[in-house]
Design a protein around this nucleic acid. Sequence first.
DNA 1: TAAATAGTGTCTCTTAGACATTATGGT
DNA 2: ACCATAATGTCTAAGAGACACTATTTA
Lengths: 265, 265
Amino acid sequence: MSEEQNHFSGEENPDRPVQKKKYRTPDGVPADIVMFTLTKRERKTVTKTLPIRELKVMLIKRKSWPFAGKWALPGGFCQENESIYDAAKRELMEETGVDGGHLEYLGVYSQPGRDPRGWIISHAFFALVEEWMLEHRQAADDAEEVGLFTIEEALHKLELGFDHRTIIEDAYRRIQEQMLRTTIARQFLPQHFTLSELYQVIQSVVPDFEEPNFIRKITSTRSRQGIIEEVRDEEGNPLSSNQYSQRPAQLYLFTDLKPRLSIYT
Amino acid sequence: MSEEQNHFSGEENPDRPVQKKKYRTPDGVPADIVMFTLTKRERKTVTKTLPIRELKVMLIKRKSWPFAGKWALPGGFCQENESIYDAAKRELMEETGVDGGHLEYLGVYSQPGRDPRGWIISHAFFALVEEWMLEHRQAADDAEEVGLFTIEEALHKLELGFDHRTIIEDAYRRIQEQMLRTTIARQFLPQHFTLSELYQVIQSVVPDFEEPNFIRKITSTRSRQGIIEEVRDEEGNPLSSNQYSQRPAQLYLFTDLKPRLSIYT
DNA sequence: TAAATAGTGTCTCTTAGACATTATGGT
DNA sequence: ACCATAATGTCTAAGAGACACTATTTA
């Protein structure tokens, strides 16, 4: 069935067709954002040590119908003069006050009845932001209660509105995939980082990622050709940091390389 | 900004809120499908040989405004009582007469002005169908002209309506990724296939995939743990086929295994 | 016996995987 | 001296990569 046959009133005036709609149209198209952050907590030990990192998701406690009192993803309606991605970007900006970070499309949620307000088709995104960006939000706007939760809490301890639990599940699966397949780990790291930090970031997002020989493998493999490289100063001497350990660790940075993965190679 | 503050008229009656909309809502939400198929063409040679396979995309020549006379993706509007995915599935069914094949969400296309009929947010899918499924379409409905084109033709030789060129580009990129990362190759193969066939299918979708030792690698790797396995008869004897060659070739089938890919492992 | 695909031999070099060992530098 | 992290040594088995070679049928 072709589009024009069943949707508009059929006139074929190229100048300005009369758009008397024959069919019901959606009542709104919001963009909802699953905002992930990686919290860092100092550990008190005798010597310098890595902080504890934990993946958290930001939620908002709804104040009004529908789902008043339940937690939900931050989001906002898309307007006619912007793309869905623009709407998500705007929303992210409103929540964090920062125009940056990783923002990626997740998918569309259109199950009939998912929103009691009507026919509302939601577009989910996920964002990777730094913890301090969310503090801005809490200070600037105390109209709504904001919370940071672990995935476990969000999925199993909280009452969530709409189909946001499904969205968060999907987002979690996706961020885990992306963490292993792309270099989004860089979003949770300073520009120069040590391999332990990188390993820890990966593990905090993908708990069952285990590589006993991580350092060895990532520094010496040809197949993993240069997704990271050593940081060096002007004279070419390798730079290291002893921020997290007594023994200084070599610093690395991500290159722009995006390896192509294959199950057949 | 929270959703309810700017979109509906604010009443908070949980029973049935008055939904006088303050803002403009979309004029329609279609699902458009990039239907890929792999054509098979006999080669005339002295002995048995593999057919030539080529990736093609199905397009429809539009008969009415907008973009009358241009080629476009098949698609149809989503209705209130179905999800976008349902709409795509329905559309696929209408086009092929078959309720099967791989159908996967590609993304949302919402750039303002992309459709002269109004604010129309399109959802793109891609499907992998068999060639004979499309012949059904051509026979059943001659109201619209249908064409099968190579990607090259579709992207560079044809005049396409809407932003469908972008969609096809994205779909092509995606099918190439999926071909290497997942076992969608199975959609283009019989249940039992030879390794040459598999190799050929992969190459027809990802031309720059080259593995001189393909057979060796895929049969002997531990990391590729059993995404395929040998076909055997009841007594455990390996089954082979000489459909495409004089010397019989071992048959394989895909298992259900989905390997986890990682740039760090 | 030639055509066209299927599959093995052989060689070198690199990587995987497991563990033990050593290095660093501040408290 | 000890802690916590960083990094190397060592060993075996397996895979990558390149190329030549043999195998199987039937027209």
